[in-house]
């Protein structure tokens, strides 16, 4: 379960060591934009040590590496793959070729490190117009790609438009990314809401992202984690309805009935699939302490 992903600057010990207590389902240890060019070495070593010695509990760890257009990304992978973070996030992925380039390098590393093939999973960060247009090719380029992730800030710069709180300018990119990810059978994660002080805005933005089909959403501040977790958790009503659907389906099966309806509404395969997803999510939430857990 990955409702919320919190970005933490890779060279900031105070934030990293508390990463698991900020409520996010995953933390993204950032070696890219949040680290000054002359501190890349320091951040890489710090993140490596944090992964080696810190226990992040149920919180997943994702490392955003430096871009393929830098001299840092291979060093990042060499240093961090032995510690097996849950995922590696390559930034500015623009094409399937970018994924294949990383895939090839990771395969070599896995052999050297005696890791199983494809042990290192990728969450591809799409934040250019080219990346959005190639979203499905990227999502299906390798079985390592487990999710697509939208980066709204760089994307709007590339689109030559302003990033706004309402986000009309990235509506097409959001929909396209979700559609590509779902077509490839993987998850989709939404860009962070960047106004840290807008407590209303984060709710609306997260609700809109969920309505489009995103699996979860990133945050750049711990202040946004609670809203994201709540928005991307099924409500009590949704959970009860999902169980009701499964009961009706089971009863129909026992009675040998094909067509099923619940309170006058036809229950077809997509509705059953959604009910199963809701129940799976509810069970995952129960394991960590209930649906209001943040």
């Amino acid at each position: 379960m990955r409702r919320s992903m919190l970005f933490l600057p890779g060279n900031t010990p105070n934030m990293i060591i508390h990463g698991d207590s900020l409520g996010a389902d995953a933390i993204i240890l950032d070696l890219e934009d949040a680290v000054a060019p002359d501190e890349k070495d320091a951040a890489r070593i710090l993140v490596r040590n944090a992964l080696q010695y810190q226990d992040f509990g149920r919180c997943e760890t994702i490392v955003r590496i430096n871009g393929l257009d830098t001299s840092e990304w291979q060093l990042d992978l060499q240093t961090l793959c032995p510690l097996q973070p849950d995922f590696i996030m390559p930034p500015k992925v623009g094409s399937a070729e970018d994924i294949l380039k990383i895939d090839h390098y990771l395969s070599q590393l896995e052999t050297q490190l005696h890791l199983p093939p494809n042990a290192v999973g990728l969450i591809a960060l799409l934040e250019t117009a080219l990346g959005i247009e190639n979203a499905f090719a990227i999502a299906s380029a390798s079985s390592r790609v487990k999710a697509l992730f939208l980066g709204g800030e760089d994307l709007t710069a590339d689109l030559h438009c302003q990033r706004t709180a309402k986000g009309e300018e990235i509506r097409y990119a959001r929909s396209r990314l979700v559609c590509a990810a779902r077509a490839a059978g993987i998850d989709a994660y939404d860009t962070p809401f960047t106004d840290v002080n807008d407590d209303e805005g984060i709710w609306e933005d997260a609700q809109f992202a969920r309505s489009l089909g995103f699996t979860g959403k990133a945050a750049i501040s711990p202040r946004h984690v609670k809203a994201i977790n709540q928005v991307f958790s099924p409500s009590e009503k949704e959970i009860a309805y999902a169980y009701e659907i499964m009961e009706v389906i089971q009863a129909a099966k026992e009675q040998g009935r094909g067509a099923v309806s619940l309170r006058g509404k036809m229950i077809d395969a997509p509705i059953v699939e959604r009910a199963k997803q809701t129940i799976a999510m509810a069970q995952a939430l129960q394991e960590i302490g209930g649906s209001n857990y943040v």
């Binding site: 010990p13 060591i17 070495d41 320091a42 070593i45 710090l46 490596r48 040590n49 944090a50 080696q52 010695y53 810190q54």
Partner: peptide, 17 residues
């Protein structure tokens, strides 16, 4: 107030540099 893993990282970085 650095944890061991942080102190080790900073020492290693300074030495490598």
């Amino acid at each position: 107030g650095a944890l061991d893993c942080v102190l080790r990282a900073r020492m290693e970085t300074a030495i490598r540099r």
